[in-house]
Amino acid sequence: MTGNELASDQPEVFEFSEENQKLIEGIIAKYPEGRQASAVIPLLDIAQRQHENWLPKVAIEKVAEILDMAPIRVLEVATFYTMFNLKPVGRHFLQVCKTTPCWLRGSDNVLKCISDKLGISNGETSSDGLFTLLEVECLGACVNAPIIQINDDFYEDLDYETTSMLLDNLRNGETTKPGSVIGRNQSENIDGATTLTSLKETDGVVPAFSKTIDSK
């Protein structure tokens, strides 16, 4: 098991929707003629979004055909990036960061919560088909560690309880605001700004800063 294998259940056909086809034309047009292979990542992404967040073999071959590439070349790209799923995943695709900063800040608790509540470990899908868990390396939001990426959104500053709440909300169909779950403003100090506190919006600082300064 290396994650390089294609799913055993494969659909027969894959066609891009009309809307996506227009999108694809625009993406390919960005590259010089004969260099359309450069568009392979965006095309795979579009295909995956259109197909329940995973890439079947026919989609890979479709992308290869559109870009005039050998299917193996497209498969190489699809297996290289963890963002591409070659097997069906749950509606909520949980990517838990396990790299050092998140781990030091308690990603083990996040994983434990997921395993307690959903009974799944790395690479597994819950029995109701709603959740899939994948442990990933750095998601690039270390300041607000630990974090989970769920589909396209980041949820930050998690611990056991907030993860549990997040999962409950997802299961009940309620939305949780992406970003820090403890109300941290972007990536600033958890106790509020400590520097540049004398700046005001009129000084030309970005609103995010000025807002916290005002509220203090």
Partner: peptide, 15 residues
């Protein structure tokens, strides 16, 4: 081609 990356990189033929 070479599928996967890092430790899970494998050389194979398509399918």
């Amino acid at each position: 081609g070479a599928l996967g990356r890092g430790e899970s990189m494998e050389i194979t033929t398509y399918l």
